[in-house]
């Protein structure tokens, strides 16, 4: 057998195999589907941001909640009872809201994985060579800004609670009487639950509850919260997609009811 010593020049060489990958499975399928899913979500979000049909009876479209702009939401913000952005505000009302949950999802550790793989191909799949000649990851600008994630979490948690409040209000009919349950109520409740599961299963939330501690035994309540968040966190990817689908379904449903396209009993 040939003896190879540590000093050998050729020893420092990797196996020279001039193909991008030797994988034989359909490794490309997940990034393609992820790309398509995220693209469709962005397209819908862009449309919803400009669409003004956000109120239908007691329902409010999640992409436009809380309603903050007086010009486009004459009833004012239900949560605060007034519209903080007066008639001077001319931009789409969704813009005021979507920047925060959008930023939360953009900097989310799961979404980072999904779009780094599917959009930036860094890498497209495990053991598949990426096309970039240089890589510094999140060690410098601009990607080091991903570390702002926890601040988006703080705002997203508030918005998640507002969506829950909206879901509770959807048990009222158009005249404000409690006891109404329509298809929209069910959709908004399911959406609120999924958004909360996604938001409070976030890695930053896990860190804030007790992940930063080294002595769980000294903080039993925080430890309990950490175990609960960890359970949600283990399904973070599933909740990310489920809540993304549910928020589009809920938003589209309310807008279609508001436009009169959906007009059946118990809508």
């Amino acid at each position: 057998m040939t003896q190879t010593t540590a000093e050998s020049a050729v020893r420092k060489q990797r196996a020279q195999i001039r193909v991008r990958t030797l994988r034989t499975d359909r490794w490309w399928l997940a990034p393609v589907l992820t790309f398509a899913g995220l693209f469709l979500f962005l397209i819908y979000g862009f449309w919803a941001m400009f669409d003004l049909s956000m109120l239908a009876g007691s329902y409010i479209a999640p992409f436009s909640s809380p309603c903050l702009a007086a010009a486009t939401c004459p009833e004012g913000a239900r949560l605060f009872g007034f519209a903080p952005f007066g008639d001077w505000y001319k931009l789409p009302p969704g813009l005021l809201i979507l920047a925060f949950p959008g930023g939360f999802r953009f900097t989310c550790y799961y979404y980072r994985k999904s779009y780094y793989r599917s959009w930036w191909m860094s890498p497209p799949a495990c053991s598949v060579a990426e096309p970039h000649s240089k890589y510094t990851g999140e060690s410098r600008l601009p990607l080091i800004l991903q570390n702002v994630h926890r601040y988006f979490f703080y705002v997203a948690a508030i918005i998640g609670l507002i969506l829950t409040y909206d879901a509770v209000l959807s048990f009222r009919d158009a005249d404000g009487n409690w006891g109404h349950v329509g298809l929209g109520t069910v959709i908004l409740v399911v959406n609120a639950v999924l958004v909360l599961c996604y938001t409070f299963g976030c890695h930053s939330c896990r860190h804030i509850t007790a992940g930063r501690l080294n002595h769980f035994s000294r903080h039993p309540l925080r430890y309990k919260a950490w175990t609960l968040v960890s359970k949600l966190n283990a399904r973070h990817q599933q909740f990310a997609w489920a809540s993304m689908v549910s928020i589009v379904v809920a938003d589209l449903y309310v807008r279609l009811v508001a436009k009169g396209v959906i007009n059946f009993p118990f809508a």
Partner: peptide, 10 residues
């Protein structure tokens, strides 16, 4: 080099 990791989970 923790910052180099872009958490693609391979």
């Amino acid at each position: 080099g923790l910052g180099y990791c872009n958490i693609t989970k391979c």
